[in-house]
């Protein structure tokens, strides 16, 4: 048993990654009139509905400062996670033509798919900042910590994508299963409702062990309002944050190892 020693040529990998990203970017909203406006319109529309139902009618947001911005940031971050994983999971199969006919590092495909979601996140973020200014929100120095939470979400999404995209090559049910998990996850994560609405303190702890909940709450806390309850507050210790971070790392390592093991057989299993 011997695997061909393929020298990873970083220069050509970089060049190829760039072209793949450009291609994805060009093709994404091909043939639509509004084009990239859709990547902003979609979360905004979602926000509008949820805002009307939960803030105006049900008034769940009362008691949270800057609730509209708080809600929009949550929707954006969750939307990024959902988009990146959904696109990434099918990406290996979608790019099957390349994998079956060219020697190409498969991880390039995963990374290039993730860049599309990152671009959308950036566009959405600009809109969020405009909103925040118009709304008259105060910014604090703590906002500089925001990228940390985004990196955490990205790495979590990357781990999930690596694992599930490799599984998806063999089992096409994976994408449906993941859609269901995302649907449940949207409600299991405190996106619409403030954590304070959950009265059971044990349940609060469980809720915030989820890396998505922890990172969204953290991001809101540093950018929007200190009303956003973080995992540190719930557990009464800063170090509690290490648990979700550990989950993210574990997901990433398992995803990476499984993807690496399966990648050499992608061409024949597709």
């Amino acid at each position: 048993m011997q695997i061909i020693k393929t020298r990873v040529n970083y220069r050509s990998a970089r060049i190829l990654l760039r072209e793949l990203i450009i291609t994805d970017f060009k093709l994404r909203y091909q043939g639509s009139v509004l084009g990239y406006a859709w990547s902003v319109l979609k979360p905004l529309f979602m926000f509008l509905i949820l805002y009307l139902v939960f803030a105006v009618v049900l008034k769940v947001g009362d008691g949270v400062t800057n609730y509209p911005i708080y809600l929009l940031l949550g929707i954006m971050l969750w939307g990024f996670f959902a988009e990146m994983t959904q696109q990434g999971i099918t990406s290996i199969v979608m790019r099957g033509d390349l994998i079956q006919k060219i020697r190409i590092p498969s991880w390039l495909i995963i990374v290039s798919a993730s860049v599309g979601a990152l671009i959308n996140l950036a566009l959405n973020f600009v809109v969020l900042l405009v909103f925040a200014f118009v709304y008259g929100m105060d910014f604090h120095f703590s906002a500089f910590f925001l990228p940390l939470f985004m990196v955490e979400i990205y790495l979590f999404a990357l781990g999930v994508t690596l694992l599930l995209s490799a599984l998806f090559v063999k089992y096409r049910d994976i994408s449906y299963v993941w859609d269901l998990i995302l649907q449940a996850g949207f409600y299991a994560t405190p996106i619409l409702y403030p954590v304070s609405l959950v009265t059971d303190s044990f349940l609060q702890k469980i809720l915030l062990l989820n890396p998505m909940a922890q990172s969204i709450q953290g991001a809101r806390n540093v950018l929007v309002t200190t009303d956003s309850i973080t995992i540190g507050e719930v557990f009464g210790s800063r170090f509690a944050v290490l648990v979700p971070v550990f989950i993210v790392m574990l997901t990433l390592i398992i995803g990476f190892l499984y993807f690496r093991k399966e990648a050499k057989n992608f061409a024949e299993n597709l």
């Binding site: 048993m1 093709l27 033509d97 079956q100 006919k101 060219i102 020697r103 061409a267």
Partner: peptide, 29 residues
């Protein structure tokens, strides 16, 4: 030879830079 598949048994050694293509127009969109 192109490194698209990996062998079950035996080994393949490539000495030099190899085109990654085996077919024309792969990746054309």
């Amino acid at each position: 030879l192109a490194g698209i598949y990996s062998p079950d048994q035996g080994q393949i050694r490539i000495n030099g830079k190899l085109t990654p293509f085996i077919e024309l127009g792969v990746g054309f969109n």
